[in-house]
Computed example of a mutant assay.
Amino acid sequence: MALLTANDLSILLVEPSAMQLKLIMRHLNEEGVHKIDGVSSGKEALALISKYPPDLVITAMYLPDMTANELIETVIQDHPELNLSYMLISSEKGHAALEPVRQAGVIAILPKPFDHKDLQRAIRATLDIIDPEEITLESYDVSELNLLVVDDSLTSRNHIMRIFSTMGIQHIDDAENGRKALDKINENHYDLIVTDLNMPEMDGHELVQYIRNDMGNDAIPIMILTTENNEARLGQVEQAGVSAILNKPFEPNTIREMLFRLLDS
């Protein structure tokens, strides 16, 4: 089967500013993307998604009738069967405002104005999700790997599980916090644990500590995917024995490279 290219992508661009809409479209055209629908509001976007679901939704943070997070949540609620990818282009820098969008599983957050190279990477990441390449490991049969995904956000869990499943991993369990994850770890064998850091009841740091210290398990790789930017806290997590820390949003290729390092080292 021929690999998909940017020309195969269908994109919905949601941008209230007519000038910004034209500018972003021009950048997309330069990347070989020509199947682009442009709208200025969340209501228009939802109507188009219902009729003609795109491969990728690129949206501003603040629309006339809703925020980007509300748009994504509505699509997920109204169309759970759709596996759309999302990208945010916004001048917003506040952590509290961006946190829900990061947790929703956007493939990229680009600033205004954005670097064209960042747009290139986001397009490649979208193609990697839609037309993925299964990972091949020397030490494991990928189809037999057992993975546990731990995250208090259902949307984030679904996004993470989708990324790993496109790589050929078929056996994936999930839990909404560290406490429930421990119940599953005590009952099942896992080759890899992927967890969020900030969760209720038992967070990712406490989960790592319990696995390494209370269970005495130093062998199982534990990867943390997080939006945390507190260097001191991340340093404590590293000292607790986490195998890798990746920031949200993440690219599928970054996950693929990390799996090689963790499982084939």
Rank of each mutant, 00 (worst) to 15 (best):
Arg256Tyr: 14
Gln239Asp: 09
Ala45Ile: 08
Val142Asp: 01
Leu147Ile: 14
Met1Cys: 13
Ala108Ser: 14
Met19Cys: 08
Glu92Gln: 15
His189Arg: 08
Asp173Lys: 10
Ile135Lys: 03
Asp141Thr: 14
Ala232Tyr: 06
Ile211Tyr: 06
Phe260Leu: 12
Val101Arg: 07
Asn177Pro: 02
Glu176Ser: 04
Met25Pro: 01
Val142Arg: 10
Ile193Pro: 07
Lys184Tyr: 05
Asn83Lys: 13
Ile36Glu: 06
Ala104Met: 02
Glu187Ser: 13
Ala45Tyr: 10
Asp131Phe: 13
Asn247Asp: 12
His95Asn: 06
Lys248His: 09
Asn247Trp: 00
Met202Ala: 11
Thr74Phe: 12
Gly216His: 10
Ser153Ala: 13
Thr59Phe: 01
Val75Asp: 02
Ile193Lys: 06
Ala104Ser: 11
Val149Tyr: 03
Thr195Gly: 07
Glu81Met: 07
Asn247Ala: 14
Leu225Ala: 08
Leu148Tyr: 02
Ile245Gly: 04
Glu134Gly: 07
Asp214Gly: 09
Pro64Ile: 00
Pro221Met: 07
Val208Gly: 05
Glu44Ala: 13
Ser243Pro: 14
Ala45Gln: 09
Gln236Gly: 07
Asn158Pro: 00
Lys93Gln: 08
Glu31Ser: 04
Asp264Ile: 08
Tyr62Lys: 09
Val194Arg: 00
Asp174Val: 00
Pro16Thr: 03
Gln239Tyr: 06
Ile49Pro: 06
Glu73Gln: 14
Leu197Tyr: 11
Pro100Cys: 00
Asp37Pro: 00
His205Leu: 15
Arg102Ser: 02
Gly204Lys: 03
Val242Asn: 11
Ile220Met: 15
Lys43Glu: 08
Ala47Lys: 15
Glu138Lys: 12
Glu231Asn: 09
Asn188Ser: 11
Asn83Cys: 01
Val39Tyr: 12
Glu187Ala: 15
Val149Ser: 05
Ala219Asp: 15
Asp141His: 12
Asp78Asn: 15
Ala232His: 09
Gly42Arg: 08
Met215Pro: 03
Glu201Phe: 07
Thr227Ser: 14
Pro221Leu: 12
Leu12Met: 14
Leu259Ala: 02
Glu138Asn: 15
Pro132Phe: 02
Glu99Ala: 07
Arg157Ala: 01
Ile255Tyr: 01
Gln236Met: 14
Ile76Lys: 13
Ser50Arg: 12
Leu63Thr: 05
Met215Glu: 05
Lys43Asn: 10
Thr136Met: 11
Val14Leu: 08
Leu21Ile: 01
Leu110Trp: 04
Gly32Ser: 08
Met161Arg: 10
Val33His: 02
Thr166Leu: 00
Leu82Thr: 04
Ser90Cys: 02
Glu201Val: 15
Arg124Phe: 06
Ser139Asp: 07
Thr74Glu: 15
Asn229Leu: 11
Ser90Asn: 07
His189Thr: 02
Asn158Arg: 12
Lys180His: 09
Val150Ala: 04
Ile220Asp: 14
Pro53Ser: 11
Phe114Tyr: 08
Ile130Phe: 00
Gln120Ala: 06
Ile129Lys: 04
His205Trp: 09
Val242Thr: 12
Pro252Val: 08
Asp203Asn: 15
Val194Pro: 01
Ile193Trp: 06
